[in-house]
Amino acid sequence: MTITELRVPAAQVTGRSPWQLAWGRLRTDRVALASAIVIVVLVTLAVCAPLIAAWNGHGPDDQFRDTGITPEGLPVPPGGEFWFGTDRLGRDLFIRVLFGARVSLLVGVVATGMASIVGVVIGLLAGFYGGVVDVILSRLIDVVLSFPYLIFAIAAVSIVGPSLAATVFVIAFYSWAAIARIVRGQTLSIKEREYVEAARSLGASDGRIMFIDILPNLLAPVIVLVTLLIPAAIVFESTLSYLGLGITPPTPSWGNLLSEAQGFYRVAWWYLTLPALTLLLTTLAFNLLGDGIRDAIDPRTERIFSRRRKKK
């Protein structure tokens, strides 16, 4: 009862919602802010990729046989014309990384979004109703989480063939269970709170209790988890594409860029390194932002995720 006790007389501090308070704390977190800026810049670049391509005249699939390939037939290093150098076919690597970002970010966001909706609904139902519903849904979650996901992905793709839709589906299928498990646990504890009991005593319907009383209190952990799952999905997409099971060339994605570059790391360092660094920067930014949001939403109480950034 140390700091909690001190915060009690907050009557004079005026009109701020829990979200506004969290935003106020997030704004002072420099690491999180820098990460957010990195993500915004990346998304902007990805969205504007066709404009940039039109501006410098390098389409994602244009091969520059004169300027983009050395006389020995090797890729050209980074320079004034090709900022990230070129690839083995003389294409502009910078433009291809940007177009790859479109695919990778899209897959990450869409797959995680689908997973969140499914995960929240299933977790909420399991936690709220308990009993048989919970037993069935929880075992389902266990089964999904214990799937050897790479083998599952290989099997699934070998049936339907590699495509953007298949990639999104595979990632979403694997991700929802993690969200559902967290949501279920949170629902179990929130439904015992007195304010839920108060709603029950007023005669509120199950749906009203779940969506008006419980759901808003789940959003904080779900938002944090989503910011941590997006980079995981991006890495997953890259893994699949790298193995030739995800996005198929010539459409660039970060995974197949890395896959193409693997034979060239001795002669053209940039070919592997620069896309890999972009991927690293993106996932790092998402992870650090997720940490920052978690600290902002929930500055001192229970931690539901294991990773924790040390503060001074």
Partner: peptide, 8 residues
């Protein structure tokens, strides 16, 4: 009334 805020 209420106990005061320790900030103000």
């Amino acid at each position: 009334g209420q106990p005061p805020s320790l900030i103000a």
